[in-house]
């Protein structure tokens, strides 16, 4: 067994309105910053022990499917590093 950190990044599917990101962008613009667009994501860092990086990724993938993301509105990606 090896110690891994699986990082799950959850973002709204392209085309789904993100009012919080729009509000954040407006606030940055009010502060005088120039920017073209802003997207926000949720990032979960999960420490776990697994037989292999693939096994760690599979487990994190299932976590995203079942709870961390809502497949109706979200896409997600999983990245695994040794810890």
């Amino acid at each position: 067994m090896t110690d891994y950190t699986a990082t799950v990044t959850v973002r709204l599917k392209s085309g789904v309105l993100d009012p919080e990101a729009e509000t954040t962008q407006q606030a940055l613009e009010r502060l005088g910053f120039e920017l073209a667009d802003l997207r926000s994501t949720d990032r979960f860092e999960i420490d776990l022990d697994a037989e292999s990086a693939d096994a760690a990724a599979d487990r994190a993938d299932e976590m995203a499917e079942r709870l961390l993301a809502n497949p109706t509105i979200h896409d997600y990606e999983v990245a695994v590093t040794e810890r």
Binding site: V16, L17, D18, P19, E22, N70, T72
Partner: peptide, 17 residues
């Protein structure tokens, strides 16, 4: 209901935030 797949779709952040 939507999060548990009893009903379709999702209810998410109001357009007004």
């Amino acid at each position: 209901g939507c999060e548990s797949s009893l009903t379709p779709g999702a209810f998410t952040t109001n357009e007004s935030a």
